[in-house]
Amino acid sequence: MSELATDREIDRSNMQISDEIAIEITGMNKWYGTFHVLRDINLTVNRGERIVVCGPSGSGKSTLIRCINRLEEHQQGQIIVDGTELSSDLKNIDKIRSEVGMCFQHFNLFPHLTILENCTLAPIWVRKTPKKEAEEIAMHFLEKVKIPEQADKSPGQLSGGQQQRVAIARSLCMKPRIMLFDEPTSALDPEMIKEVLDTMIELAEDGMTMICVTHEMGFARQVANRVIFMDQGQIVEQNEPEAFFNNPQSERTQLFLSQILGH
């Protein structure tokens, strides 16, 4: 059995899944040169859903969520985010990126700016928020991720877990409607994983629509409403966590789960 992500009871009062569609992916294909990395992906995400994407390395799960905010370009099919279709139109891309927050495995904080400046940069330049207001918003979210006292430090002075929480706060400052997490805990020491997961759980409790690529099966079990298993660039199986973990249907899923959970 995998460990649980948290010992406390998760407050599910705000975790409501609405009928409104947040992301709709239909018939999406992507190639790197001639390598077919994503094959016929169909996925609909409703507002308020918390989806965990798992799978062996090289299965295309990171590429999938990077396609959602156009860090990677897809070659076939359709991706509609918040009603806007992703095309090569730069204005659409920038609009979608400012609505969709993203956290990376290696945080990607800006080392030449302080923590506070990291958080206020996008609101000031993209949203045209006045500086003072942007700083108030930033402090609010830094408090939410529990590191307001680090605001004036440089990213390099913080631990990995703290940096990842700053990265989450930085995304939240843009008031995104969807959050993408690309293996947010994979580069962290075990004791830091928990503080980042706690932050993510709180985000889920606030009703955020989330798609997480992660190997934290405890988080998937406790927080996700849907788990997607990918292999060889395709969605092999998806189900509610209970059914997914206790009664996986596909052989590949069973093999993957047995390896990762160590049955």
Binding site: N69, L90, D94, R97
Partner: peptide, 30 residues
């Protein structure tokens, strides 16, 4: 510069000139 710096700037919705001026060039020139 690590590719992550470009991606970090992109993912926040900064346009090309903003990400160059605010994120990439200050570090690259240094």
């Amino acid at each position: 510069l690590p590719k992550g710096q470009y991606e970090g700037a992109d993912s926040l919705g900064l346009n090309y000139w903003q990400s160059m001026r605010l994120i990439i060039l200050p570090q690259a020139l240094k």
